[in-house]
Design a binder for these strands. Structure first.
Lengths: 237, 237
DNA sequence: CCCAAACTGTCATGCTGTGACACTTGTCGT
DNA sequence: ACGACAAGTGTCACAGCATGACAGTTTGGG
């Protein structure tokens, strides 16, 4: 089940790189080749994070990243479709974790409430370094998104790509068909954007909170209560 | 008033190009230089739309766009920060129009309702070619966003940039301070993402509707009623 | 043990975006 | 009007991202 989620993530995929890991169900850690490939991939991610946090995103070139792992820059692009793509690996993992947590929420919770609990749990794990999450890397990404519009942009795009997936999950919980019922789409859409808004509130210093999870929690809580607020009554002032 | 809105739009701005038009309030159509600049700018936009719709976005190079107007590609980048940026001119106008319509809505309408009416009115005007909107260009953009992820991505980013502005407007209508009350942020955020979701629903063929405005209207209507839907009751099935 | 497929490196190339500098043209003061 | 000054533009140069093509190397399987 965990493997399924992992294999479903297509970040870093690009034409010419098949998901060879998943073709056969019988090969557990199949072949030295696979392992080597995986090691190269991880090395590239490490190297990228290292350099990004040292010199910033745009100041780091693909060649530097590749050189640090001793592969050609051409090879880099066989693993990642773009420089931004490297960072999505992490978001991908987070998203998968949130998904899993979401489906595991008790059935009597309404959708947004369930999402809130799932998301907050996962993000807090990231922040605290629980499970396999590296809090340092989490912080690094946040910093990169602040300083580089390109990174933030790719995060937006990634969120949009995951929209369909989230919609299906929400529809599943609601017990409706996402092809005829638009409500799950609105939910997924709102949740997605709330993530980015939480981030912006945090980095702009609008909120006093320290933790991303706290801001996110607050925003989702508001969304639960409905958001079609009335205009100000002319009575005051 | 109209000029004010036009001058406020910063699309296409990039270091080295000052908003010379707006420095003095007394010069109406100030100088031949300004007019020439404006003509060049519009010519570039026209040329870009022309070529994009003919050959597609990525297949068109900046050089081609510039050549068609008989300027150097270097000059192109003095007007637009990137190739995507050209397209945002249009979105900018739309956004300004929606903003204006929003603030003009009767005070007894709740925020999302008001936004729905404002947005639907404006978009319908685009679709029908009312006011100064060119429906052909509107369709062209839609097509480009479908075929080119880069264009869609830049649209996402642009929406996020406008987030703050929308938040303030919503907060104004609600009569609250956006620095302490997070509700306007949630509203602006949800509305923004609903725009993109409407687009995706349309281009993926999930909905049968023809017009963008219809899908958008439907989604916003749903958002008005609250979106924290209960999970399916175990009774059914 | 060898072959085919997968992986990688090298080379070549196109396009985006930017910096530097010189040249032209419009603007404004006198 | 005329000259100084600024704004706009062209040209040249260049770094970096991304991709295609081809050849060499590894590796897994028959």
């Amino acid at each position: 089940m965990k493997e399924l989620l992992a294999e479903a993530s297509n970040v870093g995929y690009h034409p010419g790189m098949e998901a060879t890991t998943a073709v056969q169900g019988c090969t557990p850690t199949a072949g030295r080749r696979e392992r080597k490939k995986q090691r190269t991939r991880e090395a590239l991610v490490d190297s990228a994070f290292q350099l990004f946090s040292e010199k910033g995103f745009e100041a780091t070139t693909v060649e530097e990243i590749a050189d640090a792992v001793d592969v050609s820059s051409r090879t880099f692009f066989r693993y990642f479709a773009s420089k931004e793509d490297v960072l999505l690996t992490f978001q991908e993992e987070q998203f998968a974790a949130v998904q899993e947590a979401f489906t595991a929420r008790p059935a009597d919770e309404p959708v947004i409430t369930a999402i809130r609990h799932a998301a907050v749990d996962v993000i807090r794990a990231c922040e605290d370094g629980a499970f396999g999450f590296d809090p340092e890397r989490f912080g690094c990404i946040r910093q990169l998104m602040e300083s580089s519009p390109a990174v933030f942009g790719s995060s937006l795009e990634h969120g949009q790509k995951k929209h369909a997936e989230m919609t299906r999950l929400v529809a599943g919980r609601m017990g409706v068909d996402p092809d005829t019922d638009l409500r799950p789409h609105v939910v997924a859409s709102a949740v997605n954007s709330v993530f980015h808004t939480a981030f912006e509130l945090l980095s702009s210093g609008t909120v006093s909170a320290e933790r991303f999870s706290d801001v996110l929690s607050e925003l989702l809580r508001l969304a639960e209560d409905g958001i079609n607020y009335p205009a100000a009554v002319p009575a005051d002032r």
